[in-house]
Write a protein that binds this DNA or RNA. Structure first.
Lengths: 165, 165
DNA sequence: ATTTGATCGTTTCAAGTGAAACAAACTCAC
DNA sequence: GTGAGTTTGTTTCACTTGAAACGATCAAAT
């Protein structure tokens, strides 16, 4: 390099210090902060009221939506680890909020479904969750909400391809 | 109720079953799926390479950005639990990636800062994190990126008020 | 100076988590 | 059928996490 020549903001100098990363502007960090806060705020609400953990709520929610499912399908749909599903299912069965019925065509798996008590709790939590989500979205216009969902879809697709590819 | 009179989609019937919640369209659920996937994909990258956990990376990143801080400030800024910070700091200090210096004006707290080795690792991880974030955002236009950030801000503000209020 | 109450940080303890190992049940080729 | 490999779900183990209790320090009031 010619002496006396100034580097254009260090771009060519491999020994230059990297710009520090501004966390407040770093998308993965921002996403995580938001999601954690949202998740925990909601979980505090139904946790206090029904003694339900997050994995248990996810199992209830999945069965409430789809009716009858195997543990494997629940895990696949809600992206929970199979051990997490196994334990949540065991806890819910013990409290008689779900029932397990054998699949005689495949004895490895079992069909899971909400009991009446489970359905009752589910139907109490759902409006609560809806109210929370609604009041969370209350600051957003219809357009912004659509944008948000479209952006989440795009990013989810993107990160999936980064993980595997 | 007058017999033969139809309820408008059950709106007035308190015994009507609630509509099941569609999880795929439920914002808190969607946000959490995305953030978890993003966080873990990035963590796998620097975790494999440097043996750094997520809390440890957050401490490094915070110190890298702000220079000198107390454990309390790190926790406050990155919203980590003080015990999580305490243990991450202990681990990083043991590996001599950060140093702890007494604040003689307040002996409860201590000033933390990156060592040369810590700075070196930080400056290796930062470009990695930037590359990840960039390739995550590669599918978004400049406008979409601005929108995403604005929407995250709005929702974060909103959830904060829901938690306290 | 002493007391009171708040704050910083660590440690303890109980609960939750995933990787790995595992048993049981299935499929398919032979 | 028998055996090899796969799949479902549980259990074990090691690790992480946060609530609570704790020691140490500080600030304010008396």
């Amino acid at each position: 390099m010619a002496s006396g020549e100034k580097l254009p903001s260090g771009a060519m100098d491999i020994h230059a210090e990297a710009e520090p990363l501004r966390l407040e502007g770093f998308l993965p960090y921002r996403l995580n902060m938001l999601a954690t806060e949202v998740s925990q705020t909601l979980a505090r609400a139904y946790g206090r009221k029904f003694g339900i953990s997050i994995p248990e709520w996810r199992v209830l929610a999945t069965l409430g939506q789809f009716g009858v499912m195997t543990a494997r399908d629940i895990g696949g749909h809600s992206r929970m680890h199979k051990t997490t599903v196994s334990r949540a299912v065991a806890a819910l069965e013990k409290r008689r909020l779900i029932v397990r019925r054998a699949n005689r065509a495949d004895m490895r798996e079992a069909f899971l479904a909400l009991t009446d008590a489970g359905t009752a709790i589910y139907q109490e939590i759902v409006p609560m969750a809806r109210a929370f989500s609604d009041s969370l979205c209350a600051g957003l216009s219809e357009t912004e909400l659509r944008q948000m969902n479209a952006l989440i879809d795009k990013l989810a697709e993107r990160v999936a391809s980064l993980g595997t590819g």
